[in-house]
């Protein structure tokens, strides 16, 4: 029965099923202060940074992390690059704070605030959706 449906109806059905679940832009970019000396970072180092197991970029430059307070971009970045859920991320960092081995990343309410803070603060690293305007910051390429 289904095979008799016109192809365009299949396409509309697929879009209806999955289109709403996938954001218009499903890519995040890692941004840093413009004076950051490196242009790229490998995936493992990025994950270790946001898990608090590293404090420096691969060139040795110390960084301060900036995270979004919540929302789909935050959750997507954590899932794709830190391999943690929001709950795991919160719990993990609180644990580091209460055993004296970490300092909570700075938290900002919006991507615009993220761009503004990172543009103005040396040594900071954060993330935004690729479609968000990001004048004044440096985009770091994430490599495997």
């Amino acid at each position: 029965m289904f095979s008799t449906l016109p192809t365009r109806w299949w396409c509309i059905g697929l879009l209806a099923a999955f289109g709403a679940a996938v954001p218009a832009s499903a890519a995040d970019v890692l941004i840093a202060h413009p004076e950051t000396a490196i242009d790229r970072i490998d995936h493992d180092s990025l994950r270790a940074l946001f898990q608090g197991r590293k404090r420096a970029l691969p060139n040795g430059q110390r960084v301060d992390l900036v995270v979004l307070a919540g929302g789909p971009v935050h959750e997507r970045f954590l899932a794709d690059h830190v391999h943690m859920t929001e709950a795991q991320f919160q719990t993990h960092w609180k644990k580091l704070v209460f055993i004296g081995q970490g300092r909570l990343p700075r938290s900002v309410a919006s991507e615009a605030d993220m761009v503004k803070l990172i543009a103005a603060t040396k040594g900071t690293v954060g993330y935004i959706d690729a479609a968000t305007p990001h004048d004044g910051v440096k985009v770091l390429v994430i490599s495997d």
Binding site: T91, K94, K95, F98, Q101
Partner: peptide, 21 residues
């Protein structure tokens, strides 16, 4: 680290007093 330091053994000893962890 030096001073009074949380002791690392096992996966969870350092955070054994931290209920929220």
């Amino acid at each position: 680290r030096f001073g009074k330091v949380k002791q690392p053994f096992g996966l969870y000893n350092e955070s054994r007093d931290i209920d929220l962890a």
